[in-house]
């Protein structure tokens, strides 16, 4: 366990050195948050009570979504493992007595933890400063949101891990990455809450893994789920996290076998 903890801290510290990039990230996320907030406020003015929310709920949704960018990384960065497979450097990783996916997961959770605290919290604070927005009701709801955020980070990692592994089967994976960074924000509800999508598109997207990255944690934040509903929401995230991580592990095994057989 010790090794993964140190990899986690390494991942965290590595991002801590990019101070200017972090500040710029907060600025960008805040600007986009403000633009979306104004648009949604106008929508809720025209349709009060839409989706069971008031304007303050909608604004909170927007800033939770922007705050989650640093955690679930829907726009990248892509995981290095793709590049390491392409260059054959992955062979070096194989020498280490650790499970590859776990290694990368620990490192990415370090990045996510940094993003949550130093990018997510300030971004949300900007939103709270400029707008009236809803906050969770009591510590239990905060705790549920923390759990949902952790699960969102796992799902985000699981997806990016699969994108990165595609480097193994697709010669030029830039196209894959470009499509992934496009689909993620839109399907996750980050761009626009899934509640505003027409049915049945909204329902379909709610069932896909991307919604576990933004839509579900934001709903948990707003207290849309309670009791059994909350368990179901977190269970939905956990199920996708497990499925993606298991798929990642299986594909890693296949990829590694090919690297070993072909000698890189």
């Amino acid at each position: 366990m010790g090794v993964y903890t140190s990899v986690f801290w390494h991942g965290l510290r590595r991002y801590a050195t990019y101070r200017a990039a972090t500040a710029a990230g907060i600025l960008t996320n805040s600007v986009f948050g403000c633009v979306s907030a104004f648009v949604l406020i106008a929508v809720w003015e025209a349709r009060p009570g839409l989706a069971g929310w008031d304007a303050a709920d909608a604004v909170a949704f927007v800033f939770v979504a922007q705050a989650l960018i640093g955690v679930v990384a829907p726009f990248g960065p892509s995981l290095e493992i793709g590049e390491r497979i392409r260059t054959g450097d992955v062979a070096i990783d194989l020498i280490r007595p650790v499970a590859l996916p776990a290694w990368w997961l620990a490192q990415d959770l370090g990045r996510a933890a940094f993003g949550a605290v130093f990018r997510g919290v300030p971004t949300f604070a900007v939103g709270a400063l400029l707008f009236t927005l809803t906050l969770p009701d009591g510590p239990a709801q905060w705790l549920a949101f923390a759990a949902a955020t952790l699960l969102a980070a796992l799902v985000g990692f699981g997806l990016r891990y699969l994108y990165a592994l595609s480097a193994f089967w697709v010669v030029d994976d830039r196209g894959v990455q470009a499509v992934a960074w496009l689909v993620g924000p839109f399907f996750s509800g980050m761009f626009l809450p899934l509640a505003l999508f027409p049915e049945p598109l909204g329902a379909v997207l709610r069932a896909l893994p991307w919604s576990a990255m933004v839509q579900v944690p934001a709903e948990v934040f707003l207290g849309d789920h309670t009791g059994a509903g909350l368990a179901a929401a977190l269970g939905f995230q956990a199920a996708w996290a497990a499925a993606l991580l298991l798929a990642g592990r299986a594909l890693t095994a296949t990829a590694v076998r090919r690297v070993v057989v072909q000698g890189g």
């Binding site: 929508v43 025209a46 839409l50 196209g175 499509v179 924000p185 839109f186 505003l196 027409p198």
Partner: peptide, 25 residues
């Protein structure tokens, strides 16, 4: 083609968002 498509898609997602918003207001 994929890269062009992703750019088209990015622009289309903005259009779709507008259309979805006006589905409610």
């Amino acid at each position: 083609a994929l890269l062009t498509l992703s750019q088209v898609g990015a622009a289309m997602s903005s259009v779709l968002a507008i259309v979805f918003v006006f589905g409610h207001a």
